[in-house]
Design a protein around this nucleic acid. Structure first.
Lengths: 226, 226
DNA sequence: GGGTCATGTTTACGACGTCAACATCCGGGC
DNA sequence: GCCCGGATGTTGACGTCGTAAACATGACCC
């Protein structure tokens, strides 16, 4: 990873000609330290979960003194919070990808059902692929403030739209629409954590996806039964 | 809290006559340090969650040097693990209490249904009453080993029996029995964490229990539909 | 009654989060 | 073109944490 890489793909400013001999940061000012720190901290979370998000280590990796971070973050909690936002962004992206990958079948009712299930799969897939990030995203410390994560809003609205579609296509009775977001979200969230940190950790890959499939069936059945 | 108090209610040994003037531990040997430390650490978890389980602070509260803990635990992780067992014990007790409180209605089918729902309520009730302990119980660090928590086995077998009862009373088709434990557990676990650490944290008490009730209905509907 | 081993204590080390004081340098006003 | 102020980064220090090594105490067995 070069120093120029960061979470948002923003390169830091170049003032004056770059010294090719030692372009690995000799400049006193970094130029994009905030993003660089977020990126480093996110890597830490990816590898070791929330406990691994250590301010000093992130600074070390960026090649900067630990206290420099305080020019851009309120402290460790604030840095951790920034990583949580990254995690939720990844989660939303995974759900979006899964839903977008549903091939049109010609039957809109079938597609609507599949898109809803795909959201659930995308959720679980992210948790399995990035357990450290997933855990960090739902860490209690530094709980997300309202309205501070457009990514979380995005994933929530994807869910809402999928549920509305189920109603629109007549797959789910309107009477069951209230609180369906919670009823759909909680089961998938729960199974992710039971697999990552709970008693389901011992299951092998096959048993896991079987359990996930069964769970989705139960939820769909409960939500959509007439 | 006196020094004699501990997780198992075991008083530590009294050798020789107790000095009434300073019975607050002047003896060199504590007598029941392991349990005293677990109790103190559990209090820390209860108040502040897993991050608050600090070995030195637990030792301080017991009135003992920090390194004394190493005579009874492998280190911080081992102490935390002991707290996790306490948490799971409390969780199982809460479920058991809730199930036992179901009043007999005369109709066994109704009672079976109510007992199952009561288990779910007991699960959530514990998470709401002891958020710090609940979080600590499902902390990744120091994940429970197989077979090392009889309490966890107990709560799991309560769930298994409740599901078997649903089948026995004809409330749930046998075809839906496989993997029902996971399908029932995950939703309740998920909603607890979404409320404690996730986006459902902002809901007031009324909205929460409504969401929980709705979730239980969806799960029951999905599990039991013919 | 004396030795032994479990159980506590003291001291020390490195890592962490954080604060205060100091250094560097970018950009705007003369 | 220069200079100065504020943004940005560094150094050094403090208290806390987990942990290890060396030492102290005393319960129990022969």
């Amino acid at each position: 990873m070069t120093l120029a890489a960061n979470a948002n793909g923003v390169n830091f400013r170049q003032h004056g000609p770059v010294d090719a001999n030692r372009n690995r940061r000799t400049r006193y000012h970094h130029g994009d330290l905030r993003n660089a720190l977020i990126s480093a901290a996110t890597d830490l979370a990816r590898t070791g979960g929330p406990e691994a998000v250590v301010l000093r280590e992130a600074a070390r990796r960026v090649g900067v003194s630990a206290t420099a971070a305080y020019r851009h973050f309120d402290g460790h909690g604030d840095l951790l919070h920034a990583v949580k936002l990254q995690a939720h962004a990844g989660l939303a992206a995974s759900m979006e990808r899964a839903a977008a990958a549903v091939p049109p079948s010609g039957d809109e009712r079938i597609d609507t059902d599949r898109r809803f299930r795909a959201l659930a799969h995308g959720y679980v897939a992210f948790a399995m692929a990035e357990p450290g990030l997933f855990r960090t995203g739902f860490q209690h410390e530094g709980t997300l403030r309202t309205n501070d994560s457009p990514e979380q809003v995005r994933s929530y609205s994807m869910l809402t739209e999928a549920l509305d579609d189920l109603v629109a296509r007549g797959l789910m009775p309107v009477s069951r629409r209230p609180l369906a977001e919670t009823a759909a979200w909680a089961p998938m969230h729960g199974i992710c954590l039971l697999i990552l940190d709970g008693p389901l950790a011992q299951l092998d890959e096959a048993a896991r996806s079987e359990a996930v499939e069964r769970l989705i069936d139960v939820v769909m059945g409960g939500l959509c039964r007439p």
